[in-house]
Every structure is written in structure tokens, then in C-alpha cells.
Design a protein around this nucleic acid. Structure first.
Lengths: 242, 242
DNA sequence: CCCTTTAATAGTCAGCTCGACTATAAAAGG
DNA sequence: CCTTTTATAGTCGAGCTGACTATTAAAGGG
């Protein structure tokens, strides 16, 4: 607290503060991440997480949401789930200068082809796990984000953030399977979801949706519950969970 | 990513980056927090979380551990649990300048009277909840830290970080009760702890500790497990968990 | 020296949840 | 019409949990 009491005493180079975004969505049942391609050194030609500098009048959260709108091309990102992950501040993480980056995870229901509009942001949806090594420490950030999202599916109702306003239980189950990378037993899944008050609520108009062959599925909307008690644990292949 | 590709193009004031620490310990069964008293404006006379600037060659984690050592007066803080909470970056959070603060939570087993050694750091252990309004946004940070620690007790073996190397199950239970603020059923608690492989392991020398009246309790050490599956949920007074 | 108090440890029992299934219903396609 | 496909319904036993009761081993006071 010495330094805190005497601001004029400290002598150090300033920090640049950025936000980095791990934006996830589901496309055809597979988890995808939004990545940009770097045109300049360092890491020219590598992919990277979208992000940018925090402006003087912004909080990191505000900057993250602004970047999210810019990179996805979506006009309204106000309802999207955006969550601070953690801050990466290793001295050598950017070879050019001292950059402290606040990382966020975001979830999108549908996947519009990115790099929308006129700005030069070139972002693409890439299936999770298929992008080569990313620039800077972005592999680590992305892995942390994936782990966080997977964990939050267990004890929150976050999964509906991946779904359109109306969805079937099968689609909701696909969210879990895509993020966790493991199959989920269908009858047990619907029992758990339907037994949790406020997780989903049926669309009353006896609505149903069809796109494939089988029996049409009932439609549901996201409820107002946020947490899951008890949690919906992902299957562990055996032994101690990580 | 525009700005990321052209560092020389950005023009903005630099940010100061600090760490703030919410350091918890148990004293006589009650949860305490380490707080410093501010001598200068703003918030002169208010208490605040210990913290300080991140130096140019440090990561936030390194800075946090350095501050932890300085403020507690402990010579060895390498084994202590230190965990990044989140980053607070609202533009107006410090009236003097633009400060982005990375918050950490730390857990101490015993509670040496702080402000040790010769340095001017004056830190005191204050029972949690009894300190008036804190400086800056530190009330919010402290509340977030408390919530995080309480949540992690549910699904990790973190509670042993509050205990000395050897402890009784009663002491371990006190950790849960102090952090959660609710009583815990003793037989059920020990059944759960003992049934979780790797949570605690008995000290083989039939050791026992006594300080009070009743039957002496067996001593245990922390095991090597880190997570709790299934979790040890804190009692909910009824209804939806927050 | 006994008896009360205090705290640790052991054990019981019903209810709930979960994983692993099997069975039925309702559509599409040939 | 029959097969395939997918949604939905139901069954059964194991395991965990919450709410208890009982026993054991010490300290302290009369």
C-alpha cells in the first residue's frame, strides 16, 4: 500500500490494456470458435483471438462487447452472454510491448458468417480444435475459455445461450455434447432438464418443429433460472475428475 | 483487430495496473480479512484491501504474491493458496487516474499479527463483515472474493488451505461454517470428507490433539485430491440458490 | 472418586437422484 | 405398408444425502 498512497512516487513504464475474446457457437452440432487471421508480424499468418485495446473511457466489459459487435458483424450484441475469464499479464506475452489482456468468453446462438459489414475485420468460424497454434498465448486462453464454459454447463443454465429463442430438447442436448465432447443419455438428460424448475419452459402453442425425419419435437424457451442445483455433471471416463 | 495490427496507430493514455488482495484466514473459528488503513486522500481513514502496482517485470500473479508477503509479514508465502478473481476496470473507480486492478483471493492457515517486520505496511485482521465501507470499489471486490471462496469450498478440497499442516475434522468443519456462515451437520460432514478419496489422510501415529474438554480428535493431513465429486453443497435456507 | 459436561465417532433409515436400460409414439421415405 | 428415425415415457437398483440416535473418551467439579 506504500505505492497506493503516493501515486507520484511510482516510476514505471505504462501498460497497454487489451481484451481478448473467445467467442463460441454451434454450427451443425459442432463447437466453433471465432478467429481472425494476422497479417503482420509477430505471428503473421497465424490465427488469433479477436480483440483490441481498451479505450480510455471504457471498462474492459464495454470494450469486449464493442469488439464482439465489430468482429461478429451483429447489430445487436446486448443480449449475448459475455463473461470475464481472467487476465493474462506475463511480461513476455507480446514481444513488442507490455500488454495486459483481459480475456472474455462469449456464446452465440446462431452463427452468421462473420466479418460482416464494411469494416476490415476478417473473422471466421473455425471448428474448435482444428486451428493450428494460435498467436501469442491465445491457445492457452482458448483452452481456459473452453474449460470454463464446459464447467459452467454443469451448474448453470448457460446452455440456452447457445440456442435460438425457441429450441428443442435435442438441440439443447447437442450443446452439452458439443462442448463436452461426450455423448449424453437422452432420456436422462430430458428428465433432468424438465425436472429443474425454470431451466426451460414449453412453448404453449403445442408448437413443434420439423426438419428431419423423425417424430417432431416440442419447442421450449429459456426459463428464468440461472443455476442448476444439483448440477448436471459431465460423464467422467473413470477415476478422478480433473 | 485493427488496432492489434498497428500498435503505433493507437493514441490513448496509458493504464496503471495494480493488484488487490482479499486475504482470508480463520481466527478462533471466525473468518477474518486482512485490511489496511488509508492515510491519504482519497478515502483517508477508510480501510482498503492491501495491494499495489504491478512492476514492469512482473506478472499480476508475481506482484500479488510479493504483496502478500509484504503485507502479512510472512517470510514464506510460496505454499499459500492464491487465486485470481477477476479484473476491475471501470473508468471512475479511482478518482486520481485510470487504474485497472487485478483482484486475487488468498487463504492463510494461521493468523500471525500482520504488519510484520520493518516496512511501513500496516495491515490488520478484521472479522469479515465488520469493517465499515471500504475505499474505492473494495467492498465489491471483497464480496466477490467471499462468494468465490464459498463456492469453491463446495466442489474443491480448498478448505485445507485454511488449516495448519495437521488438523482435526472439527477444525476443517469450522472452515466451512465460518466461510458459509451456516452450521454443518457433524456426522454427515465427516462421512462425506472421509468418503472422498484424497481429501484428507489420517496421521498414522495414532496422533491426537487436545486443547479442550471433550474426547481427543484424530489428526489428519491434506490429501492430494483437488476436486470434490460430487460436491459438498452448502445448505440453502430454502428455495432457489443464488 | 463418581458424575456431569463436552466433544468425537459410529450407525440407522427414508427419500431423492442418477445411470443404464427398455418400451412406445409419431413422423418421413421408399 | 413397412422400415427407419427421432421424440417421449417409464422402470429398476445403486449411491448419496439429510435428519437423526447412540456410543466412546476425555476434562472438571463436587
Amino acid at each position: 500500500m506504500l505505492a497506493m498512497d503516493g501515486y507520484d512516487k511510482y516510476a514505471h513504464e505504462p501498460f497497454a490494456v487489451t481484451v481478448d475474446l473467445a467467442v463460441f457457437t454451434l454450427r451443425e452440432g459442432a463447437l466453433h470458435v471465432l478467429l481472425v487471421e494476422r497479417g503482420q508480424e509477430p505471428y503473421a499468418g497465424h490465427r488469433a483471438l479477436p480483440g483490441g485495446f481498451v479505450q480510455p473511457d471504457e471498462s474492459a466489459e464495454t470494450a469486449a462487447r464493442r469488439e464482439l459487435a465489430e468482429e461478429t458483424g451483429l447489430s445487436d450484441v446486448s443480449g449475448l452472454h459475455l463473461e470475464q475469464l481472467r487476465t493474462y499479464s506475463e511480461p513476455g506475452r507480446d514481444p513488442r510491448m507490455r500488454v495486459v489482456s483481459v480475456a472474455f468468453a462469449a456464446l452465440l446462438p446462431d452463427a452468421p458468417e462473420a466479418h460482416g459489414g464494411s469494416d476490415a475485420a476478417r473473422a471466421d468460424w473455425v471448428p474448435y480444435g482444428t486451428a493450428g497454434p494460435l498467436a501469442f498465448d491465445h491457445d492457452r486462453i482458448l483452452a481456459d475459455a473452453h474449460e470454463r464454459v464446459g464447467a459452467k454447463l454443469e451448474y448453470t443454465c448457460l446452455a440456452t445461450a447457445f440456442c435460438p429463442p425457441e429450441f428443442t430438447l435435442g438441440e439443447l442436448q447437442q450443446v452439452y455434447e458439443a462442448v463436452w465432447g461426450t455423448p449424453v443419455d437422452r432420456p436422462n438428460f430430458r428428465r433432468k432438464v424438465l425436472a429443474t424448475p425454470g431451466f426451460v419452459e414449453p412453448v404453449p402453442g403445442a408448437a413443434r418443429l420439423t426438419g428431419g425425419r423423425g417424430k417432431p419435437a416440442a419447442l421450449y424457451r429459456a426459463g428464468n433460472a440461472t443455476t442448476l442445483h444439483p448440477p448436471l455433471l459431465r460423464p467422467t471416463p473413470e477415476g478422478r475428475p480433473a
